[in-house]
Amino acid sequence: MENSQKLLDKIQKENIEQRKKSEFAAKNIFFWTMFTLSVLIGGLATSVLIFAFGQTEFDLLSHITHSRVELFLGMLPIVWIFFSFVFLAASIALLRKTKKGYKYSPVLVLMGNLIMSLILGTVIYFSGGAVKIESIFAKNVPGYQSVEEKKTAIWSAPEDGFLSGTIISVENEVILQDWNGKDWKIDTKDALIRGRVSMRIGEEVKIIGEMSSEGLFKASEIRPWKGQGNGANHVNN
């Protein structure tokens, strides 16, 4: 018997049916949908990453002499770096699963996905989405340390030279109440005061300096709580 006839007999005898066109179309649509979702979620993660990096003051590393690596790792938004990486990898893998996905060069796919994530992330960030996502995470994910909490932790280490809180007195001497409710006398003599800081009661500030003794902090630089307060700085002397 001819092999071709043997094949037809096998197909007919075993009643081997063809998979439907719609099955293949559905599979392709599924992978494209998952790819699009991965890019979108990757974009969301990137937007929070942009937000987190925007809030992180890496220049603090130059102000401490010990535990630099620890501080650096503490500053990094590990969760969002992880999410961005995972969804970037997922989108690349999913694109390759689509019908013609194998045609694209891996480097181009990687670059394309990175650019898409960055553009989407930037758009979401500027539309306020990043802050919302971050706060949703902070409220609903146990153990998640929000950008704000991370910032508070970094700036609540007077023994390392970082203090923050609200100014509660400016008469005769500056008194700052930190986030734990403890009062600190701040020596602002010779301190560089960032442009956007106004030394008045109720102002929330971050201070770089040195803990002289318990309850006394010698400031070398005062920044507003939000941002770095770049602008016309002046020295308080």
């Binding site: 094949l7 096998k10 197909i11 081997i16 049916e17 063809q18 998979r19 439907k20 066109k21 099955e23 293949f24």
Partner: peptide, 11 residues
């Protein structure tokens, strides 16, 4: 292989 070709002919 040709059984597979047959099954996936619509693809």
């Amino acid at each position: 292989a040709f059984v597979r070709v047959w099954r996936n002919l619509n693809e």
